[in-house]
């Protein structure tokens, strides 16, 4: 069964059709990549899935449940985590605090218990910390554990954001340009992590990425979009060979079709 199904989704900002009738489905345990030129609507698709934007049209379901009308804060609880192209972290907090915040929806203690700091609360805090420490170890963030985000280099902040998303304990992770701004070594490391997420953590990965090297290395299937519409879907090689995709990147229309 498909984990995520987007059916004919669209969002119009006034007359601008940022996403216009896109359909795709992501299978459980799959790495699915969305590619396309700048302004194609890739990040907008992410914002529709994570319910930051309301859909003008269409339907999104996750794990058999219709999520089209849910609020942005309900998404984490269902098991969808994400990162952002421009990195959205709690800048005046430490790496550890940011990742612990990922455990927010897993808090099962009451207001009064929290104030009294009962043994149950302490045990829960230890469990959260253990979980977060596993992610810190996985992403090799040990050296930065108690550093403030505001002072960290770009590459590290990007990894912290992945760590916070993993701390949520999701079924599916949405990575918005995980390799942008990273060095070649760093981006290879991201490729390994994506492999591990799928293999060891059983995660489904949906990513937006420009780096075709990374996409070819990790993605099972690729969807190409341009101007809010679907161009092609298939393996990385198939999509790259598609004349519509090449035209969208090079700016020329294939013969016999309107621009």
């Amino acid at each position: 069964m498909s984990l995520l199904v987007a059916k004919d989704i669209a969002i119009h900002f006034g007359g601008v059709k940022a996403v216009d009738g896109v359909s795709f489905s992501v299978e459980e345990g799959e790495v699915f990549a969305i590619i396309g030129p700048n302004g194609a609507g890739k990040s907008t698709i992410f914002n529709l899935i994570s319910r930051i934007y309301p859909l003008t049209h269409g339907k999104i379901s996750f794990d058999g449940k219709d999520i089209t009308r849910l609020k942005a804060h309900d998404i984490a609880q269902l098991g969808i985590a994400r990162t952002f192209q421009n990195i959205e972290l709690f800048d005046h907090s430490t790496v550890l605090q940011n990742m612990l915040m990922g455990r927010h929806t897993h808090s099962r203690t009451s207001f009064v218990e929290n104030i009294l700091f009962t043994p149950k609360v302490r045990q829960q805090e230890r469990d959260h910390r253990k979980r977060v420490e596993e992610m810190i170890e996985f992403l090799e963030l040990e050296a930065y554990r108690n550093k403030m985000i505001a002072g960290l280099p770009y590459g590290v902040r990007k990894v912290v954001e992945i760590g916070r998303a993993l701390a949520i304990g999701p079924k599916m992770i949405l990575l918005d340009e995980p390799a942008s701004g990273l060095s070649v070594e760093e981006s290879q490391e991201v490729a390994f992590w994506i492999e591990d997420m799928r293999r060891d953590m059983g995660l489904t990965v949906l990513m937006v990425e420009h780096d075709m090297g990374l996409v070819s290395a990790v993605a099972d299937r690729v969807l190409a979009v341009a101007n809010g519409r679907m161009l092609a879907e298939g393996t990385a090689a198939e999509v790259q060979a598609d004349p519509h995709v090449q035209a969208a990147y090079l700016g020329t229309a294939p013969a016999g079709e309107p621009a």
């Binding site: 930051i52 804060h73 309900d74 985590a81 800048d91 915040m101 927010h104």
Partner: peptide, 24 residues
Amino acid sequence: RTKTGLAAQAASQNQMAAYIVGVP
């Protein structure tokens, strides 16, 4: 100390980030 208080602190630092970790 409280979950609600921490969530409020988180939202004050970054609303977008707060949303995606499940803060209303």
